[in-house]
Write a protein that binds this DNA or RNA. Structure first.
Lengths: 346, 346
DNA sequence: AATAAAAATGTGCTCGAACACATAAATATT
DNA sequence: AATATTTATGTGTTCGAGCACATTTTTATT
């Protein structure tokens, strides 16, 4: 029923040589109308699917994929990505796939641009990047397109038709998820939305989460809650947050839009008298520790590891199996507490 | 650095023919100690990894895998598995893999045994099964082993050394996860653990969940809660549960250990005055509807789809790439509420 | 009609592993 | 020493797609 036909089979059935079948399948070279029709007739009857194994055996071309992401040494958020890359390398090492990892400094647009220049010079077949900087990304993606280098992105969604593929999360909805959990823990009181970040680079990221978070409470139309936004930088968290805490004695919950929940948790740790619900992002080690201690109630898992893995594997399948690169792959918004955390840690 | 060596390369380096290298690699045929040493010397220096593409090209053997699971028509819990099988079929259709699906009636051990007999007669290379019935499974696995058919299991863990592989969830921990969520919603009162099932087939399954659930509260040592267990069958849910509700006016939460939370939810739906927290299992349509209505607070996702997919793919990789079948693969315990459910529905 | 040019079609080799088979070298047997 | 037998080693073919090149057929040109 679903017998596998080969080019030779088709040739025999159509009464021509495999060379002619090959020309029809790839519409190269010239074929007489008579032969074309005969072959098409056969192709209409059977369901020919080329043997990808054979194709890739002959194919001596080595596809080179560059992955560009922030240095995990600077921000451990990116650490799981390295494992995702490792997995992809392992999975595809049987094929002619070469994967090269590049790191940039997430606090420097210059570093981002420099890394991209290096990649451009290296002329890979494709690049998967975490486009932290919006304007710069548009520039370099244009260059990649001109150099015929396929671009795929992850983690940060760029609103532009210039990029084709994206793997990541729906940030707005993840904010809503956080809100729904907060709404479950608390019945009333003040909730702070805290952005902790060095630069404006994550601005869009954090804003989307905040919007989603607020949107949930707006819909509920529950005026038992009041929401406040607080923007902090890593170096001033301690001082500024202490002041904020003092000035807001009714504070009951905190939603931290970056992976820095542990910074807040460590400040709340000594204040045993204040019971504040904490919800943050990402299973970085410090966060998980506070999760287990009970100071952080929930973490939302962004699954960076899988983001990178999927980003790479769609590229590989594009080259190897000629599949299209999906426009957007949205990963589930995983809810993590102390009880199920261990299963998500890579 | 990580150049790919072929058998021919090794032969040249060792000064022998590729035939001899082949004999050493597969330790077949006879090889002189001199040749063996020369080849081993080369193999110690380089890192030879056979080209799996080439290997599988020549390999004309078609590996046949049978998948046996309960009929989704009888219990929609199993519906996502069909999609998992579809995904696997698609992914591996390039290779010589043939996957056959078989359904049995989950309420009949006879049906289970009959299906297995059919599969045994069909002589596939491997079988992936949902071993609902413990005793019967041990019997038929023995027969599979004798017939040299590789066995992998999913969903229900069989405590026996007779089976090698299992893909599923840690049920005890999933009970704990449910408890931790319940503990978040409620501060005190009575909690019911309800088992809804036709037969004893799921007994172990449900018990493990209950144990985990109770274990969490035991550890907390919080005597604000009291836990009760209630066993129901699908046809008597309505009558028995109504009685139970009346007799337990202080009931604040219900943990349903099967995918039948919707049955309880539909009975609670008209009782607007009683606010009861509901936590259940599985994203079957009815459950999700009540989740969205707010009657079910959380569902724990057992990800049957991925269970089957992984169960198949480990078998495929076993045949194609000679990888070992992992003894146990435990999938994450996904916490689902109304906000993130859509991302998990296949 | 003969030759040149263009178009159509067929043939043969490659990729790397695997294995059957052929040949060669090393022992054993008379 | 000559032949038989065992053991070791090498050669050649296969899998299916893809593409270069050779060959044949058709059409154009003198």
């Amino acid at each position: 029923m679903d017998k596998k036909y080969t080019i030779k089979d088709i040739a025999k059935m159509a009464g021509v040589s495999k060379g002619t079948v090959d020309r029809v399948l790839h519409n190269r070279g010239k074929v007489s109308p008579t032969a074309l029709e005969k072959i098409n007739e056969v192709l209409n009857v059977i369901n020919y699917e080329p043997n990808l194994i054979a194709r890739n055996l002959k194919n001596t071309k080595i596809y080179r994929i560059a992955v560009l992401l922030p240095d995990p040494e600077t921000d451990p958020y990116w650490l799981p990505c390295v494992n995702g890359i490792r997995d992809a390398v392992n999975e595809f090492k049987a094929y002619n796939i070469n994967i090269q990892t590049h790191f940039f400094n997430p606090e420097s647009t210059k570093s981002f641009l420099e890394s991209n220049t290096i990649i451009l010079e290296d002329q890979p077949d494709a690049v998967l990047l975490a486009p932290l900087f919006h304007k710069e990304t548009l520039e370099i993606v244009k260059e990649y397109n001109e150099a015929n280098i396929v671009v795929n992105t992850f983690n940060n969604q760029i609103e532009s038709e210039i990029t084709k593929g994206f793997v990541g999360q729906d940030l707005h909805k993840s904010g809503r998820v956080a809100a729904s959990l907060m709404n479950l823990i608390l019945t009333d009181g003040q909730i702070a939305i805290i952005h902790i970040d060095e630069s404006v680079k994550n601005a869009v990221h954090m804003q989307e989460k905040e919007k989603g978070f607020r949107n949930y409470f707006d819909e509920k139309n529950n005026n038992a809650f009041s929401l406040t936004t607080l923007k902090l930088k890593q170096h001033n968290v301690e001082t500024k947050f202490a002041v904020f805490l003092e000035q807001n004695p009714n504070l009951k919950g905190i939603f931290i839009t970056t992976s820095k929940a542990y910074q807040i948790a460590s400040l709340l740790s000594p204040l045993k008298d204040r019971k504040i619900a904490l919800i943050g992002y990402d299973l970085v080690e410090n966060n998980v520790n506070f999760l287990n201690e009970g100071l952080v109630h929930f973490l939302i898992h962004q699954n960076q590891k899988r983001q990178v893995y999927l980003g790479i594997s769609t590229l590989v399948e594009h080259f190897l199996f000629r599949k299209d690169i999906p426009e957007t792959i949205l990963l589930p918004i995983d809810i993590i507490n102390a009880e199920n955390a261990s299963f998500y840690i890579a």
